[in-house]
Design a protein around this nucleic acid. Sequence first.
DNA 1: CTCGACAAAATTGTCAACAAACGGAGCCGA
DNA 2: TCGGCTCCGTTTGTTGACAATTTTGTCGAG
Lengths: 224, 224
Amino acid sequence: MTESAPDRQPGERSAVAAIRDAIVRGEFVPNQRLVEADLSAQFGASRATVRAALIELTNEGLVERVQNRGARVRAVSLEEAVEISEVRMMLESLCAAKAAERISDAEVGELRELGERMQAAVAGGDVVGYSGLNQRLHRRIREISGQRTAAQVLERLRGQSVRHQFRLAMRPGRPQVSLPEHLAIIDAICAHQPEKAADAARVHLGSVIEALKAADAEVSPLHP
Amino acid sequence: MTESAPDRQPGERSAVAAIRDAIVRGEFVPNQRLVEADLSAQFGASRATVRAALIELTNEGLVERVQNRGARVRAVSLEEAVEISEVRMMLESLCAAKAAERISDAEVGELRELGERMQAAVAGGDVVGYSGLNQRLHRRIREISGQRTAAQVLERLRGQSVRHQFRLAMRPGRPQVSLPEHLAIIDAICAHQPEKAADAARVHLGSVIEALKAADAEVSPLHP
DNA sequence: CTCGACAAAATTGTCAACAAACGGAGCCGA
DNA sequence: TCGGCTCCGTTTGTTGACAATTTTGTCGAG
């Protein structure tokens, strides 16, 4: 950890984005203390800027702050990850239904192409590529839905659960399970079938929840 | 702006709460500019504290901030209010279902009593009392559900749509419509019927959405 | 050896002052 | 008259220092 911190060019990149990236990329591990002075030095920003960034990230659910005791990276437990996935189940199904109603022909082609690329990635064993396409698909569906409120909430929740999502994606056999679920969502949306799209999204997120529990049970087979 | 009872003890927490209260209570109207120096004087806090508060409220969706141009009270349009209600429909139904699964006998009594008091308020024409009980009911259901993630999101959304909610509550005849919907939710939860509770919540929020549109159409029959 | 109090260090919360950016008033030239 | 330009007041963004609070380390008593 004494490894020379990446001296980002001062005054260029927003401190919020920099710290957020450091957290979601895993550079800062859960429960790690985030001392304002240290971050100030690391990112070349003033302490006030760092402070504002921490407040913002607190409201995004990425860091925890307690009065006079500083900030630390928030650790999301399995239970919380499940809760987040439950909320996602409701909101992604809403977005999927809305997207099925509003999608244009051009966007149909776009989604179909995404689906094909996902198939190719799974067939080729490109796990990280598939993971990236996965995120792009979900985001694109949110955009097409036009439901900006739900989209915003989902974006925030994604940041919180990115670590668990990543662990899931790396699980052997997981892509083979989720791929057909994703394709079903794409098919329903492109066919302008809101009910079917919502159902497919619910099925997918239900699968995610089950996989989350299974992955955790495998990692820690003993319960404290 | 004439009213001034600014003698609050210093503290970031109180500044956030004070400004938030001023916004939700309607003391600050939508699109009103929020100048840091002015708020600093009004609430007796330093500008840095006010600034931190504005950042926090921005992330809560209550104020809008643009680079170098300051902050103002966010105005939520009818479309946004509908979007918010759609998200609420999904999440409140989730919470209602969870609450139906987990509710204890003591909590059953609590909810039933709330229902009776709501009936009495409507019968007595106590609109503001009914409105308060309404909020208490929804919050209590969220608490009983144990779904803290959904509860948090709902709490944030409530702050944003409080103005529209208030307008709704004041609509003549509205309590008579929403009361049976609320009672249906209570009955389903107390009977430990998750599916029925979720359906009742969906029906209720659907009714809210319709009423929102109707209320707006009545206020502004001409579209600008 | 353990427990409690006390002191020192570290960290956050707050404040006042300075620099930069935006918006508008007024001026100039065509 | 109108378009563009500069200048100036206002407001935000940033910096550095100071006060308040918590945590840590040490010492002595039982």
